[in-house]
Simulated assay, not measured.
Amino acid sequence: MLTIGCHLSSAKGYEAMAKEAEKIQANTFQFFTRNPRGGNAKEIKEEDVRAYGERARKQGITKILAHAPYTLNACSEKESVRNFAFRAMKEDMERMEYTPGNCYNFHPGSHVGQGVETGITLISELLNEILTPSQTTTVLLETMAGKGSEVGRNFEELREILDRVTLSEKMGVCLDTCHVYDGGYDFVGDLDGVLTEFDRVIGLDKLKAIHLNDSMYGFESHKDRHARIGEGKIGLEAITRIINHPALRHLPFYLETPNDLEGYAREISMLREVYKES
């Protein structure tokens, strides 16, 4: 079965997100842990969590993906920004235990002129301070497009971070199709080659989720601009190969395309049509 969803607003709580997922025939979803531009997280109500759990079981939702705010930069040159990253992620890890066994995704960050090595060191140090042996949440590093001073522009940089995290079993990777293609990995012309390279450098066992997006600017553009499925430089044919690939088809896919709920419903329906049930 294709496990697919999209990004939903968490403003009204977990049960409301599950209801929206049901409306668009999604069986998973992604949400921001707080305002994507930062700030305090909304209070979690235990009755909402219980209602969500019952609804999720009925709908067949088994895994969901939380996304850290975009302003979380673990390797900023500013101490105040790094302190926010620590406070926000530590709090998010505690809040994730209300819905145990799920994943938490974040952009590794931008070193802002300090250099990649410094960036990798700061990110891994933060993770080593926050991760605990008892947590049930898997923290995912997202693949990046290589815009500006982003860390995670290639598989090797992600591997370096993973290697420096003590509790490596609590870590994984979320692969963004737009970012990887924009970053110079040819998902369209050589999908098998890209996955072989990922397996060699990181290991496919570390791949836990996929952000399924088309690309507005395309191969090696380093632009990070998402397009609707089939309307960008990746195209529906290549995306069909991605969701059906033996190494990927079992993973959860999350749409981050420029859409409203109706648009997401259309994309989910289209992708279910081209997915080949095994």
Results as ranks from 00 to 15, higher is better:
E91P: 01
N259E: 14
D186Q: 09
M93H: 09
V116S: 15
I64V: 15
L141D: 07
P133G: 09
E237Q: 10
A11M: 00
S10Q: 08
L248A: 02
I4N: 06
E47V: 07
L72K: 06
R228A: 15
A227G: 04
A145Y: 02
D190F: 02
G203L: 05
L255R: 12
T240H: 09
P252V: 04
E160W: 11
L127R: 03
K12I: 00
S110F: 05
G113F: 02
A26F: 01
I161G: 03
E94P: 00
V274G: 07
S124Q: 04
E20M: 09
E117M: 10
T257P: 04
G38I: 07
I202N: 04
T71D: 13
E15F: 08
L8T: 14
N128M: 10
I239G: 07
M96N: 12
G152N: 04
G53E: 15
M144L: 15
Y14S: 12
Y98D: 11
G109K: 06
R266Y: 10
M171R: 04
M89L: 15
I123H: 02
M93C: 13
G218P: 11
N35C: 07
T33I: 08
G101I: 03
S76P: 09
R159D: 14
L131A: 04
R95E: 06
G5Q: 05
G148P: 08
G13Q: 11
P246W: 01
P246E: 02
T177C: 12
R153H: 11
I243S: 07
S215K: 08
G115P: 02
E47I: 04
A18M: 10
G232N: 06
L122Y: 14
N40W: 11
E20L: 02
V49A: 07
H222C: 13
K12R: 13
E150L: 08
R228T: 15
E77Q: 14
A26S: 12
R87H: 14
R159W: 10
N83A: 15
R164S: 11
G119S: 10
F198P: 08
K63A: 06
E20Y: 12
M270G: 00
V180Y: 04
I44E: 10
V139W: 01
I229M: 01
V151N: 09
D48E: 03
A51E: 13
G119Y: 01
T33N: 00
S168C: 06
I268D: 01
V173A: 05
L122N: 15
E125L: 12
L251A: 09
N73C: 11
H250P: 00
Y254G: 02
N154S: 07
R200L: 14
L131C: 05
L248H: 00
P69Q: 08
I24M: 09
S269L: 10
Y181L: 10
E256L: 05
R159V: 10
G189K: 13
S76V: 04
D199M: 12
G101N: 02
G235K: 01
T240G: 15
C178I: 08
T121Y: 15
S124F: 01
F198A: 06
G39K: 10
